[in-house]
Nucleic acid binder design. Structure first.
Lengths: 293, 293
DNA sequence: GACTGTCATATGCAAAAGGTATGAAATTCG
DNA sequence: CGAATTTCATACCTTTTGCATATGACAGTC
């Protein structure tokens, strides 16, 4: 294909000016080379594009057809270049963001998403809720570009994690539970209650932290019910099926009949991290991370 | 250092092969120049398009955005070239064809249009009916590309006319007219009848021919009614308002109460020509003319 | 540890694009 | 009527740039 973009730009200039001399001036070359370029192009197409007259040049049928078909090509290419630049700056593209249910309640996450959205409105931000192991697998597989999860899982060498928030966990009790009267509770006081907790598969990190705290308090919690969503745990507490321990952010989920209580002594911690593949710090990821204060 | 079509083709090859060496082979050059072209392009865009790995090359965000935007550009240009070639062969385009009412009844015209339509189905053939002076003006002004008209008007120097048909004119009489009994009529027998003829503005050539024939027959026709459409003249004859003289092709317009009769002696002739601008014998015009047997 | 496959770098040559000078033809204007 | 102007085309030369060849660096593989 011997016709290239320069030829097309020259052609369009001549078509518009209907005059080789002015067209040459417009595209910034002299008239003779322009004439030659057009002639070469006509030769390679195998048809005259212009009818040369004493007053200038007018399009032939072939030229008119060609013009219609290539009219927007230079604009398209220019647009492609600006889009590439924007993409390089992380202003456009698709960012797939995974997060756990509990992370979704953390103001840090909501804030980061809001700030990114307002700063990069043209980025297609896809939010996917999943549990920590799923996120872990997905970020490795490339299903997600960025995930909010609980740090501490194995397999983090290929990831770069940054801890964003570290909050104490709260005990979740039925509102009428006697331990709730003084506004906080000691884990040991809950030793005989059935615990409603995430399954190991759904939330290994939080679960482990809770178990360790309980062990520090001198007991091993008795599992009343395993759930796969932390919100389910809170609902089950409301139904009187037991107690639970959740990250403090979950208190924003107000459920009637449920009280969130601070844990005295060695309270379990819920760390929240944002993670991405180590090699892949594309501009979108970089920009999003910059917005995670 | 601008981005041109060659660059885009190279870029797309690398994007598809994810490998510089194979991409180079595909586009028919060696790997080092390909690498350099891509690098130049990246420099001129100001963003990396590929992430070079040990195993090949993968698109960056910018590269992916660029690819989306230029994906179809080479096809568009290739298509433009084939369209230009087709247009040069007269296979596509717009052909504006003017014709007089009376020409529309001539089988030669219908046949030419039919044959052109079947041979060049992708040409947009626009048919416009008008009278001879309008056609004459329109073809000069560029409103029409090709017209069927009665030859002999002034201003034909810039036109190339080709006579397609020469037919005798017929007398149009009311069916019960005594002169119609023997199947033909002498113009002189009509000397006392009111003639219903085209106005000079609408059909100067035919009118002149009829007047000359009448003068040869020894009289000057008395104008009963001037009309601007030859079909109107025939209708008025049917209403008993007089007689008329029309090209033989008009006999295909069968109107109750009207008889078409051959004219004995020096019958006026109706010539039909196809005309186009002398300079402008574009492929469409040329192809149409070729179909006018 | 040699081999293979990846992309990058260096250098020389050839093709292509652009510049300058000039020519031919027709219109415009004094 | 003829000179000036304007149009595009031609000829020749210079510069740019695209491509090939040879080679290097690096990493995964047998």
């Amino acid at each position: 294909m011997t016709v290239d973009l320069r030829h097309i730009a020259y052609f369009l200039a001549v078509a518009e000016e209907q005059n080789f001399t002015r067209a040459a001036e417009r595209v910034g070359i002299q008239q003779p080379p322009l004439s030659r370029q057009i002639r070469d192009m006509e030769e390679s197409i195998g048809a005259a594009l212009f009818r040369r007259t004493r007053k200038g040049a007018e399009l032939t049928e072939a030229g008119a057809a060609f013009r219609e078909a290539v009219r927007h090509v230079p604009d398209q290419v220019a647009h492609a270049i600006t889009e590439a630049r924007r993409a390089a700056r992380g202003e456009v593209g698709v960012l797939r963001l995974g997060y756990t249910t509990s992370a979704g309640f953390n103001p840090v996450v909501a804030q980061a998403i809001r700030s990114f959205r307002s700063q990069y409105p043209d980025v297609d931000l896809t939010l996917i809720e999943a549990n920590t192991p799923q996120l872990m697998q997905g970020i490795h597989a490339g299903t997600y570009d960025l995930v909010f999860l609980r740090p501490g899982m194995a397999g983090g060498e290929a990831l770069r994690e940054r801890v964003l928030s570290e909050e104490q966990m709260l005990a979740v009790l039925p509102a009428d539970h006697p331990a709730g009267i003084q506004g906080s509770v000691d884990l040991a006081d809950l030793r005989d209650e059935p615990f409603i907790l995430l399954s190991h598969a759904a939330g290994p990190i939080l679960l482990d932290e809770i178990f360790q705290a309980c062990r520090s308090a001198g007991f091993t919690p008795r599992i009343g019910q395993r759930v796969s969503q932390i919100t389910s745990a809170i609902n089950l507490v409301a139904n009187g099926m037991g107690v639970s321990v959740v990250p403090a952010s979950m208190r924003f989920l107000q459920v009637p009949g449920v009280a969130y209580l601070g844990i005295t002594g060695h309270a379990p911690l819920a760390r929240l991290a944002v993670a991405h593949r180590r090699g892949d710090s594309g501009p979108l990821v970089r920009n999003f991370l910059a917005g995670c204060a």
